[in-house]
Write a protein that binds this DNA or RNA. Structure first.
Length: 910
DNA sequence: GCAAGGTC
């Protein structure tokens, strides 16, 4: 019997053929493709003698493409690409592989597919099946199930694990391919054609080759980078104070930290500090001793490998995968593309350890692991992920380094081995001592740690666990601190995203971006497209281009935020339905494509938002400049130097823009439904500073709701309700002119201004700060407020009733206005000026005096004359000033928790 | 000139 065997890559064909033939009488001959050799040998499958013909493909054999008439960029409206016919075909460079398969399949009875055991492998299986059965419909088709290239596994697959291929899994991949193609091509063509020639984009890429690509993976990847960048820009440094206490004795030094952490109110900090200095004797109030384990990492999967290689060796994720792939193909490590981070119960972990016993560096450790007396062994913990296809990454062959290996090969192999050894080791053990002291009613604590057993840390040298000694104390002991100072610090923004952070975001369970095998490609694409840059410490900054694109889509109120991962994760879920057979391929395709087409039309309807976002960062190219002529509508209230003219740009959209452009970017964008607009000699009776000339508008009947008149004499000064409504309805969003800067207007506030571009943090327009932002009321509405007679009113976030505007009379905030709920229960509270800055209100726990620490421990404080005044301790202690007022309406940008800022967030970088 | 997924 002749059996055609096909592997996913040439190296796997060679390795599997070598294993099955036991390297005896294996012949190699050329196929049509120079890379994909053919191996022949005899082998017996369950007693049946077989002549094995073993060849390979190189990944996918086929591609998906639009039919010819849709291929050229200008051949159709990009929106047509959601319905244009597509077909699968074998591209030119794969034709010779196809011919080899056809020739060999003709003379075979069986076809065994040795493709990777993942969803893509299942899809490739059907590509091979299509080609082979076209020339030989009588083939018996089987899929060999294997996950490592080691003898035992391969023989077992051939003898006991030949399965039927699963069409449903292949279908799920077809769904993904088609959707990626359609949305990628449509959005890429749309945004490239819209913006490439409209702006002078000054990045390294040659302008002729520039493509402003959109992809459902590359764009959310960029989104993560931009989002962090915005958090950093929005960070307002706040000064805080902290009391530092240390005590030196013969035994050493103990650094005590103030249990209040940080106080943001200087007066309060000074008062407490002076109290301490006046009566500095410290009393030991509590000593806790406990043993603490430090656990070894979970077994290694792809993303963890990339993250650790980036962290420990600063290797980029795509390079890591290249090296890992080579180690895998040479048989030194198991398949490096795996989501699994726990070993299945049957795995022979001992044998893997035994293999490493002879290594000069970690061999002794491996021996200790195997020694029952040493008690170092512990069965590995599982991380809870299992792709049911591959085990975690572990060493499959012993090596002390091969001659062809680079430093990176050595480092990565060593990481895989040490990581594996760490996983089967006992956790490290430390003894921690915490000492609490009381100085004048203030509590401080110090912590010391002694490492009792290093265990896995002995072999996993990438991780450390510091020990620190502190002197011995006894309960009730009294001493005078050696140092007692009041020190100030400033809150810091979170750092730029590192490559490890980015991989973590892409790998989140609920919103996975790409596959483990392609995450590094999306990062690379983001860099190649000049959407972001990476610095020497592997941290990413968006470029102007990257930020502008994300900003543009962010400004459009779409069903999906295209730069967020939600769209991708929804598609993954739909794919699962197809995989499980719950839904058909056609059914799922129709649903998703309808949604995506609607989404595309929304974006196109609001293209002006994309253009506006680009205009913040880039000059318009001359070919796209707005028509220079126009009629004067009013004096520009922003620069107070030039007139504002009614203009029509080359897209046919009307706007009123300042003649001072580009120095002054004040502009009012008019609804897209305007077909004609003429400035009249009538002036507005309400808008100031006048005169503001009224405009006679004509709207396209079909583009406005029936209850609006197509003819309208309107004002762009801000008083015109109808114009505002139509602007909203037609998707342009209200763009009211900036408030004029009167003599009393505040000067530009650095905290509210984009330092790079001088753009407003609220609307991102240049030329004004967020305190003067014309959109400030628009923003307020998002946070449960409404606008009446030009004044914002705020509703309680809990009960919904209108809040009362009050004026603070505290030391810190005297005169500052705030909204609060009239109901005693609600505690809703928000500063008026934080609304203007775009931050919402929140409920806070209020107390009228210094928030005390744990009431259990405040007994000694009564004598200072403040007893009984203290509210209970809350999680947001450090956010309260001495007067009991919240420091601001802000919360952690990373996790949203109001009890801390992002710079100390426990979830950051996880 | 588009995507993401394989792989050389």
């Amino acid at each position: 019997m002749n059996v055609l065997n096909v592997a996913e890559k040439p190296m796997v064909a060679r390795t599997v053929a070598t294993i099955l033939s036991r390297n005896q009488n294996m012949r190699m001959r050329e196929g049509r493709s120079r890379y994909n050799k053919i191996f022949e040998f005899n082998y017996t499958i369950r007693g049946q003698p077989c002549h094995m013909i073993f060849t390979s493909v190189t990944g996918h054999l086929m591609e998906l493409e639009f039919d010819d008439r849709y291929r050229k960029w200008h051949s159709c409206d990009p929106a047509d690409l959601f319905r244009a016919p597509v077909h699968k075909f074998v591209p030119e460079d794969k034709k010779d592989i196809k011919r080899t398969l056809e020739e060999e399949a003709r003379r075979c009875q069986w076809l065994i597919l040795w493709l990777d055991c993942d969803v893509e492998g299942e899809n490739i299986a059907y590509e091979v099946i299509d080609v082979c059965t076209a020339v030989n419909p009588h083939l018996t088709i089987k899929r060999a199930w294997f996950s490592t290239l080691i003898d035992r596994d391969i023989h077992n697959a051939a003898q006991n694990d030949l399965r039927d291929p699963d069409k449903r899994v292949a279908d799920a991949v077809d769904v993904r391919q088609e959707i990626d193609l359609r949305i990628g091509a449509s959005f890429t063509r749309f945004q490239t054609m819209l913006m490439k020639d409209a702006f002078i984009i000054d990045t390294a890429t040659d302008d002729r080759n520039r493509v402003l690509s959109y992809g459902p993976c590359q764009f959310p990847t960029l989104g993560f980078v931009v989002e962090r960048f915005w958090e950093i820009q929005a960070h307002e440094p706040e000064e805080f104070w902290s009391i530092i206490c240390s005590h030196e004795s013969k035994e050493g030094t103990a650094e005590f930290s103030w249990m209040r952490g940080r106080l943001f109110d200087y007066t309060c900090a000074v008062i407490i500090y002076e109290m301490c200095v006046e009566e500095p004797t410290a009393t030991v109030t509590n000593i806790r001793q406990q043993e603490k384990p430090k656990y070894p990492p979970f077994p290694l999967n792809t993303i963890e490998l990339q993250k650790r290689a980036s962290r420990y060796f600063r290797m980029s994720s795509d390079h890591t995968m290249k090296v890992a792939e080579e180690l895998y193909q040479a048989g030194f490590i198991s398949y490096p593309r795996t989501e699994t981070d726990s070993f299945s119960p049957g795995t022979d972990l001992h044998t893997i350890v035994q293999e490493q016993q002879g290594h000069p560096e970690w061999g002794i450790y491996a021996q200790r692991l195997m020694d029952p007396e040493a008690g170092l062994w512990r069965n590995p913990r599982g991380g809870g992920h299992d792709d049911k296809a591959h085990p975690p990454i572990y060493p499959t062959k012993f090596s002390t380094g091969e001659s062809g290996w680079s430093q990176d090969h050595r480092k990565l192999y060593e990481l895989v081995v040490r990581h594996f050894l760490a996983c089967v080791s006992k956790p490290a053990l430390g003894a921690e001592t915490t000492v609490e002291i009381n100085i004048a009613g203030e509590l401080f604590s110090a912590c010391g740690r002694v490492i009792l057993e290093k265990n896995y840390l002995d072999v996993y040298r990438y991780e450390s666990w510091g020990g620190s000694m502190i002197p011995t104390y006894t309960n009730g002991q009294q001493f005078n601190p050696t140092k007692l100072t009041l020190e100030s610090g400033v809150t810091r923004p979170p750092p730029l995203l590192s490559e490890a952070d980015l991989l973590s975001y892409m790998d989140r369970e609920e919103a996975k971006i790409g596959t483990d095998a392609t995450m590094q490609d999306h990062i690379k694409k983001m860099l190649d497209r000049s959407y972001a840059t990476k610095d020497s410490s592997t941290r990413f900054t968006p470029t102007n281009l990257g930020e502008a694109l994300v900003l543009g889509y962010d400004d459009i109120d779409m069903t999906y935020k295209l730069w967020k991962p939600d769209l991708r994760s929804e598609m993954e879920k739909k794919m699962d339905d197809v995989k499980k057979g719950d839904k058909s391929k056609a059914e799922v395709l129709v649903t998703i494509l309808q949604k995506m087409e609607a989404c595309f039309l929304e974006a196109r309807l609001n293209k002006v938002k994309l253009l506006e976002a680009m205009a913040i960062f880039f000059e318009r190219s001359s070919s796209d400049e707005l028509h220079a002529t126009g009629e004067v509508v009013r004096r520009c209230g922003l620069c107070q130097e030039s007139d504002m003219l009614l203009r029509k740009n080359r897209d046919g959209n009307f706007m009123v823009g300042c003649m001072g452009y580009p120095q002054c970017r004040n502009a009012v964008w008019l609804p897209g439904s305007v077909s004609e607009a003429v400035v009249t000699t009538n002036t507005c009776n309400f808008c100031t500073p006048g005169p503001v000339y009224l405009i006679q508008f004509k709207f396209r009947r079909l583009e406005i709701p029936p209850n609006y008149s197509p003819n309208h004499l309107g004002c762009i000064g801000g008083c015109d309700e109808i114009l505002a409504q139509l602007t909203e309805i037609c998707g342009r969003g209200p763009r009211m002119p900036a408030r004029p800067r009167g003599p009393t207007a505040p000067t530009s506030n650095a905290h509210h201004t984009n330092p790079r571009q001088g753009a407003c943090m609220n609307c991102r327009e240049t030329g004004h700060s967020s305190t003067d932002c014309p959109l400030r009321y628009g923003n307020v509405q998002h946070h449960g407020t409404s606008e009446h007679n030009g004044e914002a009113s705020v509703s309680c976030s809990s009960c919904g009733t209108p809040c009362v505007l009050r004026t603070a009379n505290t030391v810190n905030n005297r005169g500052r206005k705030f909204y609060s709920c009239q109901s005693q229960e609600c505690n809703f509270f928000v500063w008026e000026d934080s609304l203007n800055a775009g931050t919402g209100g929140r409920s806070v726990t209020r107390s009228n005096s210094i928030p005390a620490l744990n009431p259990r421990q405040t007994g000694g404080r009564g004598s200072r004359g403040r007893g009984g005044q203290y509210g209970s301790r809350t999680a947001n202690t450090t956010f309260m000033s001495a007067t009991g007022d919240p420091i601001s309406g802000r919360r952690c940008y990373t996790c949203g928790d109001p009890s801390h800022f992002a710079n100390v967030c426990p979830h950051r970088g996880v």
